[in-house]
Structure formats: C-alpha cells, structure tokens
Simulated scan of single mutants.
Amino acid sequence: MKTLIANNSVFYLRKDVYDSYKEYRDDFKQVVKEREQSRSSFFHQSPQIYYRPFLVGYITKICSKKSLSQGCLHLAVYILDMFMDQHHIIPEKLLLVANVCLIMAAKHEENAQKIPRSSELNHLVDNQYPITDYIKLEHYLTIHFFQHDIKLQCAVHYVFYFMQEFLTFEDLDNGKNLRTLFYDFHEAVSVHLDKIIEDVHYMQLYQPSKLAAAIIAAGRSDIGLTQWTKQLENLTEYKVDDLDEIVENLLEKKQLRCLHCDFE
C-alpha cells in the first residue's frame, strides 16, 4: 500500500509509525475515553447562533485560501461554537472572535510557518480591530475559558486515526482497485466532514469518536463497501448498531433537529 501513496497524503503511514500505532492503540483508546468524558458542556443557547453560517463560511474560506488542514478548520469552528454558546458577543466583534479562534486552532494543528498572523487576518476585515484585542481575547480563551485544554475535541481528529484501518483484504476480493478505493473514500469522508461543521448539532450532540466512526461507516457505504467491519469495531469499540442514526443522517444529508434549541 505504501508505494501507492505519496508521502504527504493523509493515507501515507510509514512502517515505523504503523508499528508504534499498533503498540500504543490501547493507550490511545484510553485517552479517547478520558478526553470525551471531560468535554465541556454545550448549552444550545448562543445569542448569536444565526450568525454562525456566515462565520463558519468565513473561516472555511480562509482555511482554503491558506491551505490549512481540516483539523485546523474543525477545531476553529469548535472553539467558536463553544465560546458563542456561553457569551453574548456584539455583532461588530464576531469577526474578531472568528479570527482569534482560527489563530488558536492553527497553533495546535499547523506548522509554525502556516499559522496566520493577527495583522494578516485583521487586514482581511479592513483592520477593524486593534491588534491588542487579538492578544487579549486569545489570552482569555486559552487560559480562562479553555484552561489550556482544547486538544482532540473534534471528530476529525479521530477520523484520521480510524482511517488507517478503513480497508480490509476482503474489500479487495471483488477486484476493486486499491488506489481508486483510497481516493474515493478520502473524497467521501471529506464531504461528510464538511457536512458536520455546517450543522452545529453534529459536533455537539455526538461524542467525537462516535461521530468519527459514523463518518468512516458512511464513507465506506459511499464507495460501495459494507458499512462496518470487525476490524473497525475492534479499533473504535463501536458496533454498527451504535452508529445507525448518525450514518443515516449523514447519507441522507439531513439537517438535525434539536430538542434543546429552536435553531435548524
């Protein structure tokens, strides 16, 4: 498999990395459980929720323009959602918040050279804000709101881990082309990852690892494979029945209905 995949591909995994991955799999599972149990509560009460589609679109556009990763995009949206859920932000300050969320996410997900500068992002919004506002808000979010704890909070982080075992030898028995399966699956997963940040409820109603497992199942279905395998069940510790509701919503591109709020 390694020879078919470029070194910079999301699918590329060196043998030494793979050996370490197998050795520390149980440790990773334990980390997943601990992280998900300590996730902050989401109250579905953002006063500025109707601005969210614009803000997510704004962050997405910058990530695309700057070639920032999906991990960066999803983490930025997560930080934005959590902060808006517990604060009343005047509309004039929302772009400042979006920019700071993106800077924070990039510091966790990107190489130093790719982290956007405050002045760079401020220029995109016509230099509306003093640079000191960026510094103060990032300090507040990092230390007081998240208490330095925003890692591994999004489904995308688990998706890329679970993807390492999305394929089995049985999947190739029907003469399917390996290269085609890899790239079709990657495209399908990318579509579902885009879907879950468009709707605030996907990332808030479901645990990240469960949502990630459902995305893997939906992606397999999209490319004509059975949704789930014993291999994936062992890795994720989810049975296919655990994922049915989410997979159905993803495949049918449903907008989730939430009992906690009236935003759809």
Results as ranks from 00 to 15, higher is better:
2 K>P: 00
2 K>Q: 07
7 N>D: 11
8 N>S: 15
12 Y>N: 03
16 D>T: 15
17 V>D: 14
19 D>G: 07
20 S>A: 09
21 Y>S: 11
22 K>I: 15
22 K>R: 12
28 F>A: 12
31 V>M: 10
33 K>W: 04
37 Q>D: 15
40 S>W: 05
41 S>A: 13
44 H>G: 08
50 Y>H: 14
51 Y>D: 10
51 Y>K: 13
67 S>G: 01
68 L>C: 06
71 G>T: 10
73 L>G: 00
77 V>G: 03
79 I>R: 03
83 F>M: 05
83 F>V: 07
85 D>H: 05
87 H>L: 12
88 H>D: 14
89 I>Y: 07
92 E>W: 04
93 K>I: 06
97 V>G: 06
98 A>D: 02
106 A>Y: 00
110 E>W: 02
115 I>Q: 01
116 P>T: 00
119 S>R: 08
120 E>Y: 08
121 L>M: 01
121 L>H: 00
126 D>F: 01
129 Y>G: 05
131 I>R: 06
134 Y>R: 03
135 I>H: 07
135 I>D: 05
136 K>M: 12
136 K>I: 05
138 E>F: 06
144 H>D: 14
151 K>I: 06
152 L>R: 04
152 L>V: 12
155 A>N: 05
157 H>A: 10
158 Y>W: 08
165 E>K: 11
165 E>M: 07
169 F>Y: 13
170 E>A: 13
175 G>P: 04
177 N>L: 08
178 L>I: 15
180 T>Y: 14
180 T>S: 09
181 L>E: 13
183 Y>A: 03
187 E>V: 11
187 E>Q: 14
193 L>C: 11
194 D>V: 02
195 K>R: 11
201 H>Q: 08
201 H>L: 06
206 Y>K: 04
206 Y>Q: 04
207 Q>C: 03
208 P>I: 06
210 K>M: 09
215 I>Q: 07
219 G>M: 05
220 R>H: 05
220 R>G: 08
224 G>I: 08
225 L>T: 11
227 Q>A: 15
229 T>C: 03
231 Q>L: 02
233 E>K: 09
234 N>C: 09
235 L>T: 09
235 L>R: 13
241 D>Q: 05
242 D>I: 00
246 I>M: 04
248 E>P: 02
251 L>C: 12
251 L>H: 10
260 H>K: 14
262 D>I: 10
264 E>D: 13
